[in-house]
Amino acid sequence: MRRALAPVAVLAVLASCTAVPSAETPQKTAQKAIVAAPAAVLAPARSPEPVRPAIFAFAGELTQGGWIKGSAPAGTRSLMFNGERVDFAENGGFFVAFDRDASPTATLTATLDSGAKVTHPLTVAPRAWRIENINIARRQSGASEAFMALRRPELARINGARAKDTGAQGWRQDFVWPVTGRISGRFGSQRVYRGEPGSYHSGIDITSGTSGTPFVAPADGVVILAAEKPFTLEGNLLMLDHGLGLNSAFLHCSEILVREGEHVRQGQVIGRIGSTGRATGPHLHWSMKWNDSRLDPILLTGPMR
């Protein structure tokens, strides 16, 4: 309707210009001003969108178990991290992380709409992990078939949950501690049995009061797994997707207070601490992964206060 009015107004001015003698220039100026006003309403001035530079901009923790987030160059068509394609937001925002055993170098590569490539090398600092040398041989007996019959479907469900893309935006936030208390287990710590390394600790353990202590979501997310019954190792397991491949897992819960598919907000109570599964006492085991890389949660939250 608005587009149909503009030609009519222009024709009226042209007709007026033909009929009015040249001496009446002020009248013609006034008529043109009247036509200009509706035009301004039809196409209001808009603030220009901020233009991203043709470089990477990011901040974070460039160390093993760490992370960075920022903006890809303007016009980025695809984004690669160490040769693997990674997701990024419509505005160019991205999140990538470094595994506990990450190599000392990494590379970000953006392919632009023009076909040009922008590459940014990264230096990943090593960390001194807490290693405990045990002067006993590691038990070599593998898991029994009876145990694996229970474990295989649990692992399939965990992997399936991590593969979900919910569009969550929690990755953009500054993470908070799900609960405060004594840190009884550090990320990356490991036992070595007569020179043979065992599995390292994949998360951070927080001991806070007794079983039943509530804990909260460290950032916005979507519930991608909420165990109906205890898993063999994790017990009552709760998992949140924070978007772009970043997720949190909370183990040994005494109670889960949210359901799969539910959107949760940072600071919302989502469960209660317990000792279900393979646990020696009430505590919250919080682990984080970005795609296949394990992160140290304390590098997202900062020291506990």
Rank of each mutant, 00 (worst) to 15 (best):
A89Y: 09
E90Q: 13
N91Q: 03
N91F: 00
G92P: 02
G93Q: 14
G93R: 15
G93M: 10
F95M: 06
F98L: 10
A102P: 03
S103E: 13
P104G: 08
A106W: 13
T107E: 13
T107K: 10
T109E: 15
T111L: 09
T111R: 14
L112W: 13
G115D: 07
G115P: 08
K117S: 13
K117L: 08
H120Q: 15
P121Q: 10
P121Y: 11
T123M: 09
V124T: 05
P126L: 14
P126E: 04
R127D: 11
R127V: 15
E132I: 07
E132Y: 07
E132N: 09
E132R: 10
N133G: 00
I134Y: 03
N135Y: 12
A137Q: 10
R138L: 15
R138P: 00
S141R: 13
S141T: 14
S144F: 01
A146S: 10
F147Y: 15
M148N: 12
A149W: 00
A149R: 09
A149E: 06
L150C: 02
L150K: 14
R152P: 00
R152M: 08
E154V: 12
R157L: 08
R157S: 12
I158M: 12
I158N: 01
N159R: 07
A161P: 03
A161W: 11
A161C: 11
R162K: 11
K164N: 07
D165S: 12
G167W: 09
G167T: 05
R172C: 06
R172W: 05
Q173N: 13
D174Y: 05
F175G: 01
W177V: 02
W177M: 04
P178T: 02
V179K: 03
T180V: 07
G181P: 01
R182K: 12
I183C: 07
I183V: 15
S184Y: 05
S184F: 02
S184W: 02
G185M: 01
G188W: 01
S189M: 11
R191H: 13
R191L: 07
Y193S: 03
R194K: 10
R194S: 08
E196V: 15
E196Q: 14
S199Q: 07
S199Y: 07
Y200D: 09
Y200P: 09
Y200Q: 06
H201W: 08
S202P: 00
S202E: 14
G203C: 12
I204E: 14
I206M: 14
S208H: 06
S208E: 05
S208P: 03
T210I: 11
T210R: 15
S211F: 00
S211R: 12
G212I: 05
G212A: 07
T213D: 06
P214K: 08
P214N: 09
F215D: 08
F215G: 00
A217T: 11
A217S: 15
A217Q: 08
P218Y: 07
A219R: 03
D220L: 11
D220W: 12
D220Y: 12
G221I: 05
V223W: 01
V223D: 02
V223A: 05
A227M: 02
E228I: 04
E228H: 11
K229Q: 14
F231W: 10
T232E: 09
L233N: 07
